[in-house]
Structure formats: structure tokens, C-alpha cells
């Protein structure tokens, strides 16, 4: 008897989100899948996931030594840091975290952050993701200024949360960007936030979900099951959860004590966390160590059959 592989027929599709404008580095598209991750025999997977290099507006003094060694002096200057990402490591996209705008971490002004973001965008022309500091009030002052300065560049800006999404949604709507909707490992809130944002007029095709992830060994399986559940619902036709996922892999992985045991182990911890999240359906991985990103990039190429 010949065993027939079970092939699922899906009626839904993940939204396709484009990041970047037609600059020299072009546009990156994510999403558009018609099946679960890497199940090519069931449906189309038009876009590969990708890793974005996380850079900061200020010197990340709290980062572990392993990361600091990798980047050296460039950590003190965002332009030098971005330069290394682009020229040395051939970055496909940058993720600028405006950590220094936090009132307790330098309190940089909206004008300074806007100038920095547009300066980086202008100089490197790469698709850009910009993340606030997480301080609600400050983000609501800084992110609209950054959004305006990046107008027309089709960036991805975050993070909107269930109790603080209106200001950022309005800014993204006005300036042509997509938005990151963050929920605390909670599928119900992820769905609700997507509805609230789209109710303001930003189409579902311009939302990327940050489901909040844990690192390997730190609750990764909860994030995995949330992402899997959302994907299954999306592929069954629920458009309100059919958004691509962004995962802040570096942020989580380098918090783990195991990542700090040795340099090699830290790189592996970040890469393995990314690999697991790819299987859960991650589309964008925001990562910190160039060697980990290199490994993940190769892994993605293998998975995509390139």
C-alpha cells in the first residue's frame, strides 16, 4: 500500500507587507504565505524571512561583553555601527532602537531622534525598522517626529500596544509606514489590537505582529504556540490575525544567562532561538550578533531551498 502524505488545503493567506522604498537597496517584502512555514508542498511561500541588524541611537552600555567585542568602537556612533552592518556584514535591513530617548536612558529629544533616523535612511537607503524606547509618553512624542522625518520611505515603526496605539497609528497612516502591533504573548490581545488599528483606517496589510517572544529556555514554547495558533486561524480565513510576525530575537536571547557563558554559546543561543521562531512562522528576526545573523541567513537559504 502506498502511503499518501496528508496535504492540507488552506483558504486563507498571510498579508504581504513591503518595507523600504525604491532606493538602491530596494524593497523587502514579507508575508504572503499560503501555508505553514516551509511546507512548500502545500502552498506558495513567495517571500523568505529575513534578519534585520539591531542598532541603537546611544551606546548600549548594558550589553554583554560578547556583543560589545563583536562591534567594538562602532557602538558609540550609530553611523559607524550602521556602516559596519552594511559594508562588513551586508545587512539587508536595519532596526534602529531609540533606547536613548527613554527618560531614564538619556532622554534624547524627538528632534534629535528624527534627525538621526532620517540621516541613517538617507545615507544607507536600506529598508528600516524603527522602535521606540517603550516609554509610552515619550514614544508618543518621539515616534510621530521620526515617522514624519522618514515620510515616504515605507518603514516599519513600533511598537503599538493595546493601551497606546492611536498616536503611532495616526503617524504611520499619515506618512505611509507600516506598524508593529505588540501583544504580551496573548493571541486575544494580538487579534484585538489588529482590529483597533485597522478601525483607525490603517489597512491590515500594513500591520506586523510582535507576539512577544522568550529566548530558548525562557518561555519560547509559549510564543511558539501563540504564533502557531494565529497562523492556523489566518490560513483558515481569519484576516484579523493574518499578519507577518516580527520577533526581537537578540533582545531575548542575550538576556539568558546561558548566552553569556562563552562567546560561542551566546552566538548559538541567539541563532537557535531564531531557528525555532522561524519554524513557528517568524518573518522578521531582529538580531544582535553578526555571527549569529550569518548562521541564520544561511539557515534561511537552506530552508528556502536556495
Amino acid at each position: 500500500m502506498v502511503l499518501q502524505p496528508a496535504v492540507e488545503k488552506w483558504s486563507g493567506k498571510i498579508a504581504e507587507v513591503a518595507i523600504g522604498n525604491a532606493g538602491p537597496a530596494g524593497i523587502i517584502k514579507v508575508g504572503g504565505q499560503e501555508t505553514l512555514p516551509f511546507l512548500f508542498s502545500e502552498g506558495k511561500i513567495p517571500n523568505a524571512p529575513f534578519a534585520a541588524f539591531e542598532i541603537w541611537d546611544v551606546n548600549p552600555a548594558d550589553w554583554p561583553q560578547e556583543l560589545k567585542t563583536a562591534w567594538g568602537e562602532s557602538l558609540k556612533d550609530p553611523f559607524a555601527w550602521a556602516e559596519a552592518c552594511v559594508n562588513k556584514y551586508k545587512a539587508q535591513a536595519l532596526c534602529l532602537r531609540l533606547a536613548g530617548s527613554h527618560p531614564d536612558y538619556g532622554n534624547r529629544s524627538a528632534a534629535d531622534e528624527a534627525k538621526l533616523a532620517s540621516g541613517l535612511a538617507q545615507k544607507f537607503g536600506l529598508p528600516m525598522i524603527v522602535i521606540g524606547s517603550g516609554d509610552k509618553e515619550k514614544d508618543n512624542a518621539v515616534l510621530p517626529a521620526v515617522s514624519e522625518a522618514l515620510k515616504g520611505r515605507q518603514c516599519l515603526i513600533g511598537c503599538a500596544t493595546q493601551d497606546n496605539y492611536k498616536t503611532l497609528t495616526a503617524a504611520c497612516l499619515a506618512d505611509g509606514h507600516s506598524i508593529i502591533a505588540e501583544s504580551p504573548i496573548d493571541i486575544n490581545i494580538a487579534k484585538q489590537l489588529n482590529i483597533l488599528i485597522s478601525d483607525m483606517g490603517l489597512p491590515l496589510e500594513r500591520i506586523v505582529i510582535d507576539p512577544t517572544t522568550g529566548a530558548l529556555g525562557y518561555g519560547l514554547e509559549y510564543a511558539y504556540s501563540i504564533m502557531e495558533r494565529a497562523r492556523l486561524a489566518a490560513l483558515s480565513g481569519d484576516k484579523t490575525v493574518a499578519s507577518p510576525f516580527i520577533c526581537f530575537v537578540g533582545l531575548e536571547a542575550w538576556k539568558a544567562k546561558e548566552a553569556k557563558v562563552s562567546l560561542e554559546q551566546g552566538i548559538i543561543w541567539e541563532a537557535m532561538t531564531a531557528a525555532a521562531l522561524l519554524q513557528a512562522g517568524a518573518d522578521i528576526l531582529v538580531m544582535r550578533h553578526p555571527a549569529a545573523i550569518e548562521k541564520v541567513k544561511k539557515h534561511i537559504e537552506n530552508l528556502m531551498g536556495k
Binding site: 484585538q192 482590529i195 486561524a233 481569519d238 484579523t240
Partner: peptide, 10 residues
Amino acid sequence: NIYCDSYLDA
């Protein structure tokens, strides 16, 4: 269907 506060609209 997945619950959310606006599940009827959704």
C-alpha cells in the same frame, strides 16, 4: 474562531 473583545465585528 479566536476570541478577542471585538469578536462579533471581527
